[in-house]
C-alpha cells in the first residue's frame, strides 16, 4: 500500500502526465487529421443503431403532432389538396408533351444517352459538423458502394459531397461548409461561378464574370466539373446585400432527414493527353486521406513524361 504522500505525488503526476498526453493528442490530431476523422466515423458507426433508437420516440411524436394538425384542419387541407391536384394534373400533361418532344429531338440528333447513376438512400444519423463546420453522417447500411466524391441530394436539391466512407456510415460535407467550393452555372445569365460555403445558411457566389452579374432569383445548377455532373439543381440567387450574391439552397440543409448518394461513375471529363500536360488521375473507391486529397478535390496530380523532341 502506498503512503498518503506517495498517493498525492502519484495523483499530481497523473494530471501532469495526462495533460502532456492531451497535448500530444492535439499535435497528433493536427498532423494526422484523417486518422482522427476515421476514428470518429468508426465511433459513430458503432452507435448508429442506438441513435435510431434514441430518435425514434421524437420521430413518432412529430408524426402524431402532424396527424393531429391535419385532423383539426381537415376541410381546408382537402380543398388545398384538390387545388394542388388540379394544378399538378395540368403540369403532368405539359411534362408528358415536353418529354415526348424531347425524346423525338434527341432521337433525330443522335443524342448520346447519359448514364443512369446508381444511388443509395440513407437516413441522417447525426449532424457531425461541430461548431465551425457543416457536415452530416448518413447510415447507408452494409455492402454499399459509396465512394469519396459522390454527390448527395435530398428531395429538392444538392446537399453536398461524400468526404469519408465508413463500413456503415458515410460523411457528407454540406455545400454551406467553409471548405466547400462547387463550380456552378447560372441558368438565365449562362455565367459560370464558384459557390463558396461560409458556414452560414446560404453559400456565396464568387468568381462570376464582372460583365454578367448574377440575376436575383435565377436558378443555380452544377457546372459539371470533377466528378459532379452538370445540371443538378442547387438553388436560386438572392442578394443579401449589394454586390453580395448568395444561393438560397433548394435542399433543407438545416433539417436533413433522407438523403440519396448518387454515383455518377466517378469519371470526370479528362482532356486527351498532350505533351507536358499534368494529368489529373481520378481516384477510385479508396476513401480520401489527407495525404492523397489535393485541396479537398478527389484527384491526384500525376506528371506525365515529356516526350523527347523529334528533331526534324
Amino acid at each position: 500500500m502506498l503512503s498518503i504522500h506517495a498517493k498525492q505525488i502519484v495523483a499530481r503526476a497523473s494530471l501532469a502526465v495526462l495533460v502532456m498526453l492531451a497535448v500530444g493528442l492535439l499535435v497528433l490530431g493536427w498532423a494526422k487529421r484523417s486518422a482522427v476523422d476515421e476514428a470518429r466515423l468508426l465511433a459513430a458507426d458503432l452507435l448508429a443503431p442506438a441513435y435510431h433508437a434514441m430518435v425514434w420516440p421524437q420521430i413518432q411524436v412529430r408524426h402524431w403532432v402532424e396527424d393531429l394538425h391535419g385532423a383539426t384542419d381537415l376541410a381546408r387541407e382537402c380543398s388545398r389538396l384538390r387545388e394542388e391536384n388540379r394544378a399538378l394534373r395540368h403540369w403532368y400533361d405539359v411534362a408528358v408533351v415536353l418529354a415526348n418532344e424531347n425524346a423525338q429531338l434527341k432521337d433525330s440528333l443522335h443524342w448520346i444517352p447519359e448514364p443512369v447513376p446508381q444511388y443509395v438512400t440513407g437516413r441522417v444519423t447525426r449532424d457531425d459538423g461541430g461548431l465551425y463546420a457543416r457536415a452530416v453522417l448518413l447510415d447507408v447500411g452494409d455492402g454499399h458502394v459509396v465512394r469519396a466524391g459522390d454527390v448527395a441530394l435530398d428531395a429538392a436539391g444538392l446537399v453536398g459531397r461524400v468526404t469519408e466512407v465508413g463500413p456503415h456510415t458515410v460523411r457528407v460535407l454540406q455545400i454551406n461548409d467553409d471548405a466547400s467550393r462547387i463550380p456552378v452555372t447560372l441558368t438565365t445569365s449562362r455565367a459560370d461561378a464558384i459557390m463558396v460555403g461560409d458556414d452560414g445558411a446560404m453559400p456565396r457566389l464568387m468568381y462570376y464574370p464582372q460583365d454578367q452579374h448574377p440575376i436575383e432569383g435565377e436558378r443555380v445548377q452544377t457546372r459539371g466539373q470533377s466528378t459532379m455532373p452538370a445540371g443538378l439543381p442547387i438553388g436560386s440567387v438572392h442578394y443579401s446585400a449589394p454586390n453580395h450574391p448568395v444561393v438560397v439552397p433548394d435542399a433543407d440543409l438545416a433539417r436533413l432527414d433522407i438523403v440519396r448518394i448518387f454515383d455518377y461513375g466517378g469519371q470526370s471529363l479528362v482532356a486527351p493527353d498532350a505533351p507536358g500536360r499534368v494529368k489529373a488521375r481520378v481516384m477510385d473507391a479508396k476513401p480520401l486521406s489527407s495525404d492523397s486529397a489535393m485541396f479537398g478535390l478527389p484527384f491526384l496530380l500525376q506528371s506525365l513524361p515529356v516526350p523527347a523532341a523529334s528533331g526534324h
Binding site: 497523473s14 492531451a22 482522427v36 461541430g130
Partner: peptide, 24 residues
C-alpha cells in the same frame, strides 16, 4: 484524473471540434 481523460476521449470521439482540444 484518468476518468476525466476518459470522458475527454469520449467527447473527442462523439464531437467534431478541433482534435485534442476537448481532452486538454
Amino acid at each position: 484524473t484518468p476518468a476525466v481523460f476518459l470522458c475527454g476521449i469520449v467527447l473527442e470521439l462523439y464531437s467534431f471540434g478541433p482534435p485534442g482540444l476537448a481532452v486538454l
